[in-house]
Design a protein around this nucleic acid. Structure first.
Lengths: 148, 148
DNA sequence: CCTAAATCATTCGAGCTGTGAACGATATTG
DNA sequence: CAATATCGTTCACAGCTCGAATGATTTAGG
């Protein structure tokens, strides 16, 4: 075997498949939630809001790993859709506490359904064993590298 | 168990982990190849060139799934680095045949090393069984959804 | 042949996404 | 009470990619 690593060596790596498939999966998910008037980041924000209760925009920015100014724009659009409410924290009036409305919870549910539909589409044709091996592998990786 | 699907349901999906981890992995790979003066797309182009021999830029555009105008920019920069050569196809002088130079093959090798290093970093702390389950899962998915 | 249509590479302008530097309002510290 | 820090917001800007227009070349049709 040659010591020259070429295209085959690159394509065989985890990072190559993970990156390519990740982009593909995100695109498919984006196509689905677009019908709800949302981008994937909106779904991420909704999920972050549902996970912990009412959070400041700063906290959300660090949780999602984006700039605070982006949270402003996302929250503006979600507010326009009636999915979130902004309430001044009476204990610290600089803070805007973001909370999910009933409509927001509904949208989050629809997002989860879209994600599951995308999952089904992606993993169609895999055996149950393959599918579960994949999900546990991804979850293990996520537990190790994603802020939980 | 409630019929309201919330944040937990979204975070548990394959598409969520695949998307998030894919972005993370791509960022880490990008950080490594940046030292070579390359972006991930450059590495992808080098790999595509190594896979099949001398290809027209149109073919490469469809192979990589990007606009032909992007290939122009990528090829310009790789040419500047001495990694590729543009040769007019004598059979059809509209076509520019892109070929890897020795320097290009060297760079591709370094890219593959960077990818393997990123792999090691990502999968550190996984058991061998977990790692192989993950790679086979990803490869199965890739074989089904990626242009091969 | 010779003209019309198609194809290739290239340039250029535009859209989208996200960031970072200001700024005003509020809170904290000494 | 003054100085400093923090929060949300606005705004200008950089990065990335695409699509339309262009010129050169090839192919198809009469």
């Amino acid at each position: 075997m040659s010591d020259v690593k070429g295209a085959a060596a690159l394509r065989a790596t985890v990072v190559f498949n993970l990156g390519t498939l990740g982009a593909l999966a995100s695109d498919r998910f984006a196509a689905r939630v677009e019908a709800l008037g949302l981008k994937p980041k909106h779904a991420g924000l909704l999920a972050a809001l549902d996970a912990g209760s009412a959070a400041s925009q700063q906290e959300l920015a660090t949780r999602l790993g984006v700039a605070p100014s982006l949270i402003v724009a996302l929250a503006d659009q979600l507010q326009e859709l009636g999915a979130v409410e902004r309430v001044r924290d009476p204990e610290d009036r600089r803070r805007q506490a973001l909370t999910l409305t009933a409509e927001g919870r509904h949208l989050l549910t629809r997002c989860a359904e879209a994600a599951e539909a995308t999952d089904a589409e992606l993993t169609a044709g895999l055996t149950d064993a393959q599918r579960s091996a994949l999900t546990t592998g991804l979850r293990t990786l996520g537990a190790r590298h994603l802020p939980h």
